[in-house]
Amino acid sequence: MSKRYACALFLSVVTLPALAQTTAQPEPAPAVDAAAEPVPATVVVEGRRPGPGVWKVSKGDHVMWVFGLYSPLPQKMEWDSARVEGLVAKSQEVLLQPGINIGFGFFRSLTLIPTMIGLEKNPDGARLQDVLPADVYGRWQALKGKYIGADDGVERERPFFAAEKLLQAGLAKNGLARNGAVSDRIEKIAKQSNVKLTSTVLAIELDEPRRAACSMNSRKCRWKT
């Protein structure tokens, strides 16, 4: 029974005594206790989700299928990969998800370790309240209390790292996760079907990685030009 229908039925019962006053007075209708009404049972429907959206791009005899990637997604979500499997299996090449990779090289990375320690902290012991605008910090406090709780350590982190922590906590509390299920499944299908995998990640090599790190972490070093 919908709320609108319940209200209409209740009003019709109340007007009955007024219409019958010329004959006999009926017994008053018992009061309806809304609190005593049974609570509707919660029904959880589970099933496999459809696969990702697919766009077809063609020129002459050449065809490229573009798969949509979604994130965040419900944790442990299952999806129907039948169509994806068919398209990938008959392809000659799969272009992997694009991205950027900033590389230092193994030995150069070792020299950066002392500089990178403590990089997530604000310089000179500053807190988020000191580096954020008042209105932004007010919104941060409300969301921090809801998703992170009493964690004073995060107040000393740079806004980028604090925001990442808040995002992860919010996703976890709502049953979501950053999900690579679609891209991982496509890559697995391609390997099983012996389809060529091509990386589209742009690699950037920094000429002076220590200088870049020092510019973010002034407490650990002083770069001399």
Rank of each mutant, 00 (worst) to 15 (best):
M77W: 08
E78A: 12
W79F: 15
W79E: 03
W79M: 05
W79V: 01
D80W: 05
A82K: 13
A82Y: 11
R83H: 02
R83M: 06
V84M: 14
V84C: 13
E85F: 11
E85K: 14
G86D: 14
G86T: 10
G86A: 13
L87T: 06
L87G: 07
L87K: 12
L87W: 11
V88R: 02
V88D: 01
A89F: 13
A89Q: 14
K90S: 15
S91Y: 03
S91N: 01
S91C: 00
Q92N: 04
E93Y: 00
V94P: 07
V94Y: 13
V94R: 15
V94E: 14
L95Y: 05
L96R: 02
Q97V: 02
P98Y: 01
G99K: 01
G99R: 00
G99H: 01
I100W: 09
I100L: 13
I100T: 11
N101V: 10
N101T: 12
N101P: 00
I102M: 11
I102T: 08
I102A: 06
G103K: 08
G103V: 06
G103Q: 07
G103P: 00
F104N: 06
F104K: 02
F104W: 02
G105E: 11
G105K: 09
F106E: 15
F106P: 10
F107R: 07
R108C: 07
S109Y: 06
S109F: 07
L110N: 01
L110E: 03
T111F: 06
T111C: 04
L112P: 07
L112V: 03
I113S: 00
P114T: 09
P114V: 10
P114Y: 07
T115E: 14
T115K: 13
I117Q: 13
G118E: 06
G118K: 10
G118V: 12
L119H: 03
L119E: 08
L119D: 04
L119G: 00
L119M: 13
E120Q: 04
K121N: 07
K121C: 03
K121Y: 12
N122T: 05
P123L: 10
P123E: 09
D124V: 01
G125F: 08
A126I: 11
